[in-house]
Write a protein that binds this DNA or RNA. Structure first.
Length: 917
RNA sequence: GGGCGGAUAGCUCAGUUGGUUAGAGCGCUGCCUUUACACGGCAGAGGUCACAGGUUCGACCCCUGUUCCGCCUACCA
């Protein structure tokens, strides 16, 4: 075995072996209670980032742990077609080739995306394998597979049949770059400083007076259909029922009273109402039966027809036609200013909505879309969480979830893109001639909200109304999250009654980030309850976001991404996995740093070298004996090991991966390696002794157990070592997970060894402070506080002597200090304190000690001189921050104290040296 | 505006159903080439647990308020 662990070849070799031997596969016929996790399907456009690494490490820990516990563990893998994201990627490629999706046409474009998927869509899967993910790859699914597509259609049709899906012309969030509708949660809000424009609207009856409105979007005023004031506002309420002449148009619009829309304190207390371009105004428009004038087109540019409908004055119309809003705004504001209608412009903090895929500012846009009526689905999903049927971990997310669900809005599920599940709705051309608008250049199809769709699993043969069979299919596709919402049952074969569905639904645990709690988790619960009658999972473990060392969200544009693949190359997969697990404390983001990973790489190496020690010492006969008859160190380590086993299992049970990792780390490094391996050395010294044979047995057994305990966290290195030491079974992956045997926990023995280590540490402390080389043996005595302590130490005198290198050791309740000696206190379990005395006679190398002290005195003098200079400088004292001054003074005092002490010691040394020489 | 989380050693973070001396990793200091490991060993320094009150025999922990930092959410046009 090499001196250090080399992960590379180990990882690929074992992953291949596990895979070939079928360990990842879970059979419906297998015995054992099922334990099931469905993967949050990564986008096919994705490449493994730290978020994936964390998410999948946690899932793999759970699955490996449960599998070793004997459960029928299934981890269903798959990928998501990621509608807009994937379409964007392929469109970018086309652009680079000088082509576009319009040039290609729908069918060829979709084929192109499939080609892209065949070529690049599997990258992330291979990367998940690098991470050691023990997914059942035989069950790999894709959200646009035939089976899953069938499930999507089935759900759509059934929801439609139940009246839970409808089509309507509504105001939705529109991305003018992606040219599609977005759901509310696909809009990200970003704080910006905008302007609040105060605009005078002259009263229709009396143009000399006016009502001033405040708006952040002056350009949409052309689409105003009313002005609202508060009905109880004495400034304005007498105007309700009158009208204003809408500037820049030839229209008159009414003044209405609306206590919901208007906040008297804000702006001027008068609000323009633009129902086609603002969500609040849309609702206000409904309340007052106002018409909606849509003045923007799908690119968020001024639309000729809309401007005409809005009766915009000819002169302005010519200037802003087809212009984007930002440019038109300047022109419109100029016009208002010229006409003396711009009363004031002030800065105003506001949140701008942006497309979560491309960061373009979204536009509220009036268009026909498909919606899911969500309330009837949300109610049971609320109850499922309230009742504890579904448990969110950490619990704090429960309130977030409930709050959102209780205030949920209908879900806009149609997207005007091509890559995705096309909506299973058809329109009879004959019956909907007026409502189907087709243009050839560019080729586009608009179906107005008046059209009557026929929703069906497959294309209808005849129109039920007219009997003809000339149909056009709804061009829209479904929101990507619609198919993900079915993931826990669609992947298991639904709507067919498969054995998988019967055996593995509902699943056990969902592991996910909080960023998709609403996008995904909530919708899975709703649709799982609706179609399976059971929530799709019991536990939802919600992990943190992985950030960089400064706490910034990792992003390519910031250039602060730590690439998990590079980390795995450099430090090994096990080190990365262990780091992520150890840092996954609940309710807190993970600030990942390379140093931390390096630290756990060192841990892997420590384990590796412990293995070398074990292997080296396993040569020789073994002896079987009950634990009670084995050496004390063996009984001690088994006791400690089983405490650790209990801790790790309990932690995993509670999803405390950080605690599990830390318990294992601390035990292995600081108990097993630091103490146990050292304690075995005296016993193993005489290879042929019975004691050595017994110790070898424990050494092998305990180490083998340690590896199994650690396997879910560090799968590769544990397998590699396990195969090299005595074991039963063909792979650690399918070996039983250690379970705590409380009979092996022996508090008395733990106390005995704690006493031993306490004395040893005290002796080392004295060596350290007195500068006594480890090679020099000591004469020492321990004054024990009680007879029991004395007995415990006396029984293990040989261990103490060997670990602390003490040649003569006196242990008694009453011992006297040495004439020329040093002492240190020894704390016994329970808190009683004894004293260790060490005889220093002849141990201190006077020359060396003198040099050491002189060197240190020089350092101190230099420091003191520097500080003196500072402190005697009035400028320094006056201007420096108080804490710095305080620190400087404190340091100065410390230096002086140490200097005095060392000077005294040096003096004494000189005297004694002089006397003896 | 509402909600949630955080503030503990130089840095990154654990922690406590309230109980002797608050822990870890990294970093730092000193010693050690002792055949498992220098990706190591041993020893050590370093903390008024954000601030101010309160409850309690006792508070890092519970309560109230304040400040700062994150995030989520929201129609102040």
């Amino acid at each position: 075995m090499e001196k250090s662990y080399d992960p590379k070849q180990v990882e690929t070799r074992w992953y291949r072996t596990w895979s070939e031997r079928g360990y990842f596969h879970a059979s419906t016929a297998a015995e054992g209670r099922p334990y099931v996790i469905v993967i949050p399907p990564p986008n096919i456009t994705g490449s493994l980032h730290m978020g994936h690494a964390l998410n999948n490490t946690i899932q793999d820990i759970l699955v490996r742990w449960r599998r070793m516990q004997g459960l029928n563990a299934l981890w269903v893998p798959g990928t998501d077609h990621a509608g807009i994201a994937t379409q964007n990627v392929v469109e970018k490629q086309l652009l680079a080739e000088g082509s576009s999706r319009d040039k290609l046409g729908r069918d060829r474009f979709v084929q192109r995306v499939w080609d892209w998927k065949a070529q690049s869509g599997g990258t992330i899967i291979e990367q998940l394998k690098r991470l050691g993910s023990s997914c059942d790859w035989d069950r790999l699914r894709f959200t646009m597979d035939d089976g899953l597509s069938k499930a999507v259609r089935e759900v759509f049709v059934r929801l439609h049949e139940d009246g839970l899906i409808y089509r309507g012309k509504r105001l939705i969030n529109w991305c003018p770059r992606c040219l599609t509708a977005l759901s509310d949660i696909e809009v990200e809000h970003e704080d910006t400083t905008g302007k609040l424009y105060h605009i005078r609207y002259p009263l229709a009856d009396d143009p000399s007076t006016h009502l001033t409105v405040a708006t952040t979007r002056p350009e949409t005023m052309l689409g105003d259909t009313a002005v609202a004031v508060h009905p109880e506002d004495p400034r304005y309420n007498r105007l309700i029922g009158k009208s204003v002449a809408l500037p820049l148009t030839t229209r008159r619009i009414p003044i209405v009273g609306d206590p919901i829309l208007v906040d008297r304190e804000f702006g001027t207390g008068a609000v323009k109402i633009t129902p086609a371009h603002d969500f609040n105004d849309f609702e206000a428009g409904e309340r007052h039966q106002l018409s909606r004038i849509s003045i923007l087109d799908r690119h968020a540019c001024f639309d000729p027809l809309g401007l005409q409908e809005a009766a915009v004055i000819e002169e302005l119309r010519g200037k802003i036609i087809m212009l984007p809003t930002a440019e038109a705004r300047t022109i419109i504001v100029d016009y208002l200013r010229q006409q003396g209608l711009l009363a004031k412009v002030e800065d105003h903090a506001m949140a701008l909505g942006k497309c979560y895929r491309c960061k373009t500012v979204v536009e509220p846009y009036l268009s026909p879309q498909w919606f899911v009526k969500i309330q009837p689905l949300a109610d049971p999903a609320i109850k499922a969480v309230e009742s504890g049927q579904v448990r969110l971990i950490p619990e704090q997310w429960t309130n977030n979830y409930l709050g959102w669900m209780r205030d949920i809005k209908d879900w806009c599920i149609s997207r005007q893109i091509w890559w995705g599940h096309q909506i299973p709705a058809w329109y009879c051309r004959n019956c909907n001639a007026e409502a189907i608008l087709e243009t050839t250049v560019p080729k586009s199809l608009t179906i107005t909200s008046e059209a009557r769709p026929i929703v069906a699993r497959t294309a209808p043969a005849h129109c039920p109304d007219c009997g003809q069979h000339d149909f056009v299919r709804d061009p829209d596709v479904l929101d990507t999250w619609f198919s993900s919402a079915l993931w826990p049952f669609s992947t298991l074969g639904w709507p067919d009654h498969t054995p998988e569905l019967k055996k593995f639904y509902p699943t056990s645990t969902l592991v996910t980030g909080f960023d998709i709690l609403f996008f995904w988790v909530a919708r899975m619960i709703m649709l799982g309850l609706k179609f399976m009658g059971q929530a799709p999972f019991q536990d939802v473990y919600i992990h943190a976001l992985v950030r960089d060392a400064e706490g910034q969200k990792m992003s390519k544009s910031k250039g602060n991404v730590i690439d998990p693949l590079q980390v795995m190359d450099k430090y090994g997969t096990d080190a990365l996995r262990f780091t992520l697990a150890a840092m996954a404390s609940p309710g807190r983001d993970i600030k990942l740093s390379e140093e931390r990973i390096e630290g756990y790489r060192n841990f892997a190496n420590k384990l590796w070298n412990a293995a070398r020690f074990v292997l080296m010492n396993l040569e020789g006969p073994l002896a079987e004996a009950p634990l009670a008859d084995r050496p004390i160190a063996d009984r001690w380590i088994m006791s400690r090991l089983h405490r650790c086993i209990g801790d790790v299992n309990r932690s995993l049970e509670a999803y405390r991966f950080d605690e599990a990792a830390n318990a294992a780390y601390h035990f292995i490094w600081h108990e097993y390696c630091d103490w146990y391996l050292e304690l075995t050395k005296p016993a193993l010294a005489d290879k042929d002794s019975q004691q050595a044979a017994l110790t070898r047995t424990t050494l092998g057994e305990s180490f083998e157990t340690v590896l199994r305990l650690l396997h879910p966290l560090m799968p590769f290195i544990t397998e590699e070592i396990w195969q090299a030491i005595p074991h039963t079974g063909e792979s650690i992956m399918v070996a039983p997970y250690p379970s705590q045997n409380t009979a092996l926990i022996d508090e008395d023995i733990e106390h005995q060894i704690a006493s031993v280590t306490s004395v040893v540490s005290a002796a080392r402390n004295i060596r350290g402070s007195q500068g006594i080389a480890p090679s020099r043996a000591l004469h020492a005595a321990v004054a024990t506080p009680t007879a029991a302590c004395k007995a415990a130490l006396t029984a293990h005198q040989d261990l103490i002597a060997s670990l602390a290198r003490i040649s003569t050791l006196v242990i008694d309740t009453d011992v006297r200090p040495y004439m020329n000696g040093a002492s240190a206190s020894v704390v016994f379990p329970g808190g009683s304190v004894g004293i260790l005395y060490v005889d220093l006679t002849g141990l201190i190398d006077v020359g060396k000690e003198k040099t050491r002290i002189e060197k240190r005195l020089k350092e101190l003098a230099a420091q003191m001189e520097q500080d003196d200079k500072k402190l005697s400088n009035p400028d320094f004292v006056a201007k420096v921050p108080p804490d710095v001054l305080k620190k400087t003074k404190a340091r100065h005092e410390e230096c002086r104290a140490e200097h005095d002490k060392l000077s005294g010691e040096l003096q004494r040394l000189r005297e004694t040296a002089g006397g003896s020489a």
